[in-house]
């Protein structure tokens, strides 16, 4: 079996290496991916169309907004699936896990985390809101926000984190994020444009059509951030306790 498994690996490897010599040279300006009109259009027109300096955010939330919406839905569904798989599944009585130790939350750790968590959360908001002009956006900000709650759960225990972020909220916030994203898309549809065509929102925001796209992108990113925050924390809470939500890692 061990040797047999090398056969497909070698076949795939030979094929890929055979193809690799036809790849464009590394960093070549004439590579097909770099010469494609799509990416050239994105680089050239993002500033005019949306006034967003970070092209990645603009392409993510505006040009390819439909894609990102369903990526968010996938994240949400994965979180719900983990909840469904692990809910009421585990041993009801608590058994001692293999490398579990009974210890009080450490004084140094908890006090450091107490100082650190607000900073992390402010940084998460910054990353989310500042994603238009610097690297960042809804996914990164949401993950950072979820990580701050995970940090609380790691340094105290899961119950302490669940006081701050009750578990029911994860479902609600996750759904709310997707709803916010789709709602902005639907709103622009009702205002006469196409689905996720944010420039139609200019009447609501009372700004130019470009700035309407800018602001709507922020709303979309907030939706993504809500979903990712909720699902990341939900993943940790479910996996660390086998769905029991008590006495976690």
């Amino acid at each position: 079996m061990k040797l047999l498994s090398f056969i497909p690996v070698l076949v795939v490897g030979v094929l890929l290496l055979y193809a690799a010599k036809d790849f464009p040279e590394w960093g070549s300006l004439d590579a097909p991916a770099s010469k494609s009109p799509v990416s050239s259009h994105f680089i050239a027109n993002t500033g005019v169309d949306t006034e967003v300096p970070n092209m990645v955010t603009a392409v993510l939330a505006d040009y390819r907004g439909f894609d990102t919406m369903f990526e968010t839905v996938v994240v949400f569904i994965a979180g719900m699936a983990v909840l469904a798989i692990l809910k009421n599944s585990g041993r009801k009585k608590l058994v001692k896990r293999e490398f579990e130790v009974d210890a009080e939350p450490d004084l140094i750790v908890t006090n450091t985390v107490r100082l650190l968590v607000p900073v992390i959360q402010i940084f998460a908001f910054y990353v989310l809101a500042h994603g238009h002009v610097s690297p960042g956006g809804g996914f990164q900000g949401g993950v950072l926000m979820g990580a701050s709650f995970i940090l609380v759960a790691l340094s105290w225990d899961l119950e302490t984190a669940l006081i701050r972020f009750p578990f029911n909220w994860t479902t609600i916030l996750g759904g709310l994020g997707v709803f916010l994203y789709a709602g902005i898309g639907l709103l622009s549809m009702f205002l006469g444009g196409e689905f996720l065509d944010y420039s139609e929102l200019a009447n609501i925001f009372t700004v130019s059509r470009e700035m309407a796209r800018y602001h709507a992108m922020l709303g979309v990113e907030i939706g993504v951030g809500l979903t990712v925050t909720a699902i990341m924390f939900s993943l940790y809470a479910n996996l660390s306790t086998e769905g029991r939500h008590q006495r976690g890692l």
């Binding site: 991916a33 990416s39 990645v56 392409v59 993510l60 390819r64 990526e71 994965a78 956006g137 990712v228």
Partner: peptide, 14 residues
């Protein structure tokens, strides 16, 4: 090229 970055950014989170 921003396009591969966008595609991969969401792929990591998913």
């Amino acid at each position: 090229n921003p396009l591969p970055h966008v595609l991969m950014l969401t792929a990591i989170v998913v």
